[in-house]
Design a protein around this nucleic acid. Structure first.
Lengths: 153, 153
DNA sequence: TCCACACGTTAGATAATCCTAACTTTCTAA
DNA sequence: TTAGAAAGTTAGGATTATCTAACGTGTGGA
């Protein structure tokens, strides 16, 4: 079972569970996921049924929800991709945090682990092998270009 | 009418029409779009009806298809975003072309024009302000990191 | 104890996107 | 000029993911 068999919608539920766990919540309930994903309760119930059938979550009627080992493995990868892309957007491209969060979330299901690793490698290189001075120049250059393009439209 | 009102599926039809036009095709038919998008004819018919209702394409039963001004404007933006992201993946991250094409296509609907512009600005900076030597190092660094990570898994 | 209310589920609807099967229109070549 | 092939449409159905409305569950406080 790898993440490509799981539809984007279900992937989002996996990462939501993963993050709630990481944030220290001991018991994750349908209600928590509904709030996290901004959907209604029945949508969550339906998704959990499907994920349980795929053995990616443990779930009992009227009970709590948890990731199986397979589910955790997939969620970890998806979470990592989204975080990497988010950092790239914010740290290197200067996209405002709020917008970057949304975009990283939408992009999470479109790029794969190999690409994410390449992105992280690029960021590492720019961070480690370029002097701080140079990184500042990059960011200034980007902002200048954005301002210019706004004048033209 | 801006692209955010148009569903991802319909956006894909717009960019397909746009590219066929740019490639020099004088008359675009339902069949051409079906081949381009790898879907069956009825899917295209349905999409064209919706796009025609939104005034983004001109379309007559059993006839040919063309973009309206509004449709062209949206398609242009989407096409630009996808191309920019594709070039970034291939030129800077070294993602294989085939994979990059798919990913750029999926990401096209997730990132917005401002982010795409920032990406292009970053690429321009790296191209213009770094010596060729340095760019080669970046690419080597990325490849090395990818190889390392493959050993660890 | 017991019931109110928050939590959860089921049933049924809607929307987007795709499909197949069957039909209609248009084009082309003998 | 006409019949068959190619192109296009319509009808109807599947899937994914969402919603609302109505019904079931379970538990903490009076």
């Amino acid at each position: 079972m790898d993440s490509s068999n799981v539809t984007p919608g279900l992937q989002e539920y996996l990462t939501s569970i993963y993050r709630l766990k990481k944030s220290g919540k001991k018991e994750i309930r349908i209600r928590d996921l509904a709030k996290e994903r901004n959907v209604r309760l029945p949508s969550v119930t339906g998704a959990m049924k499907k994920l349980a059938k795929m053995n990616l979550v443990r779930y009992n009627r009227y009970g709590s929800v948890d990731l199986t080992e397979d589910g955790e493995r997939i969620a970890e990868v998806l979470d990592r991709i989204e975080r990497d892309f988010y950092l790239f957007l914010v740290d290197f491209l200067g996209v405002p945090e709020e917008k970057a969060r949304e975009e990283a979330c939408r992009v999470e299901h479109g790029i794969n682990m190999d690409t994410a690793k390449r992105l992280v490698a690029l960021m590492d290189y720019l961070s480690k092998c370029l002097p701080e001075e140079e990184r500042r120049k990059i960011k200034e250059y980007i902002e200048r270009r954005i301002e210019e393009s706004q004048c033209n439209s």
